[in-house]
Design a protein around this nucleic acid. Structure first.
Length: 456
RNA sequence: GUGGUUGUAGCUCAGUUGGUUAGAGCGCCUGAUUGUGGUUCAGGAGGUCGUCGGUUCGAGACCGAUCUUCCACCCCA
């Protein structure tokens, strides 16, 4: 019985052209990571459930793919949990492993586990797939790649400055101009929460504030009210909703709002430091923008928060994010190690580059020259030439069958091969090669040496 | 996890209130053209109508379930 094969929801196959394009992004990011001094590590695709569970909030726990235990896993479960049919309670007894949800928590685990072998500050990069049991949408997959760069063991704000430059370097190298690097600081958010008397509701407060540009001021206030934030507190937020101007103008306004909060003032200082450094160093193509409503992402951020949005006009969620987390390794028992890092969403960057037509043309070129097959003797001559070409770093291949000329030329066309070599009777007798340029149809007869130099 | 949406040839899509043998464009294959591709012309192949079940004399169309796509929540790269 032949049944239609399929792949799970939210996953994809990649054809050769797509892989070539993905590798282009991959290689570009990797090159910049290396320029900035990051070193690669890799971690397993699945971790022990305890490593991941509880690190991303309740919502995160729900989105983690759990792996069923091997063997007769149900027989070991206490009837108490089995008969209750409570999935959340039963899960720990039938699943001890889970697929990686992001690269940051596994990295924290790695740092703690290998702390004695690591030279701090440790700068690592990691480019691996992560999995989320999310409902797919455009730019949202259940399996996708993250490209992370993090530094642990340094509290210096120069790291934040470096990461802003790294974002700029990567997107400039990808020719993706005009991305906006939004920056905020957790200390400012908690400072504001303090000012309005909602310290204990920081998460609810930030989640609501984050929706400002999406649902508007009124709805945000409604949500805050429904989460138990006092009316008087929300009124104190008014200057925040009216915040405008460039980076330094917003800083001035924030200083007024946060004058009574020590923590808030520290957040402002940090932002000012980064902004001053960046204006001195300059960015190539990206814009750095202060966005006090930026609260996205994980609750473990303690200082800077980053998010990158695609150039204006491209409808896509964030293509990168990151921030500083002072105590990430603390949950694994290693105190006082500060970390800061950023992430690139490879799959979303792909969609943006595709939409803006920014992939280089030569990207899908697999071979430079195809040799037409006229028969056994000619094929052998071709393979000798191909061997020499390959030795000179030129990708070359022989059409395997002495098929009709039209068929072989058609094949070259579809593979987008820029050159074709013809070796038939006359070339055999004169010991030459006919090189045809597929773009303009021009042909020339060359010796092997000239063939090599022409194609190099 | 909640609500909605989509599925017909390799691709993009038609298909009337349920009625013979399900169509088009592009692509593909063959020939015109046995050492020259893209253009042109002629011919040809290709469909369990996502899947399973139901209603009906009769279902691509109606109903249910399920899978998938996209969208809005939630959350996020």
């Amino acid at each position: 019985m032949a049944q239609k094969p399929s792949i799970p929801k939210g996953t994809r196959d990649f054809n050769p052209i797509e892989v070539a394009k993905r590798n282009y992004i991959f290689d570009t990011i990797k090159a910049q990571f290396q320029h900035f001094g990051f070193q690669p590590i890799e971690t397993p695709s699945f971790e022990n459930s305890d490593t991941l569970m509880g690190k991303y909030g309740d919502e995160g726990d729900r989105l983690i793919f759990k792996i069923l235990n091997s063997g007769d896993y149900l027989s070991k479960v206490d009837n108490k949990y089995y008969l209750d049919k409570d999935s959340n309670k039963l899960t720990p007894y039938i699943s001890e492993k889970a697929l990686r949800y992001d690269l940051t928590v596994p990295f924290a685990r790695y740092v703690v586990q290998h702390q004695n072998e690591i030279d701090f500050p440790f700068k690592r990069y990691q480019m691996q797939p992560v999995w989320r049991a999310d409902r797919p949408q455009k730019g949202r997959f259940r399996e996708f790649y993250q490209c992370d760069a993090d530094v642990v063991g340094s509290q210096s704000l120069w790291q934040e400055v470096e990461f802003v430059q790294l974002y700029d370097a990567v997107f400039s190298a990808l020719k993706l101009e005009g991305v906006t690097i939004k920056i905020n600081n957790r200390k400012i958010l908690s400072g504001i929460a303090e000012v309005i008397g909602a310290q204990d509701k920081l998460i609810d407060f930030t989640v609501a504030l984050d929706k400002l540009d999406k649902i508007g001021e009124e709805k945000v206030k409604e949500e805050m009210l429904s989460k138990g934030i006092s009316k008087e507190g929300i009124e104190k937020l008014q200057p925040l909703f009216e915040l405008q101007g460039d980076f330094s103008e917003q800083i001035v306004a924030l200083k007024a709002i946060l004058s009574v909060s020590e923590e808030g003032k520290r957040g402002i200082e940090e932002l000012e430091f980064i902004n001053t450094a960046i204006s001195e160093l300059k960015l190539q193509t990206a814009n750095l923008q202060l966005d006090v409503t930026l609260a996205r992402g994980l609750n473990y951020y303690t200082g800077a928060i980053f998010e990158v949005s695609a150039p204006e006009g491209v409808k896509m969620g964030s293509i990168g994010g990151g921030g500083r987390y002072d105590d990430l390794t603390g949950i694994f028992g290693l105190k006082d190690v500060s970390g800061v890092g950023i992430s690139f969403g490879l799959d979303r960057i792909y969609l943006v580059l595709e939409e803006l037509n920014l992939f280089p043309e030569t990207i899908s070129e697999s071979i430079k020259v195809l040799c037409i097959n006229f028969g056994e003797a000619e094929a052998l001559t071709c393979l000798k030439a191909i061997k020499a070409l390959r030795a000179h770093g030129i990708n070359a291949e022989l059409y395997p069958d002495a098929a009709k000329m039209k068929k072989q030329m058609n094949y070259a066309n579809k593979r987008a091969v820029p050159y074709v070599v013809l070796v038939g009777e006359s070339e055999m007798s004169s010991n030459t090669f006919t090189l045809k340029n597929m773009a303009n149809g021009e042909q020339q007869q060359l010796s092997l040496e000239d063939l090599i130099t022409t194609l190099q």
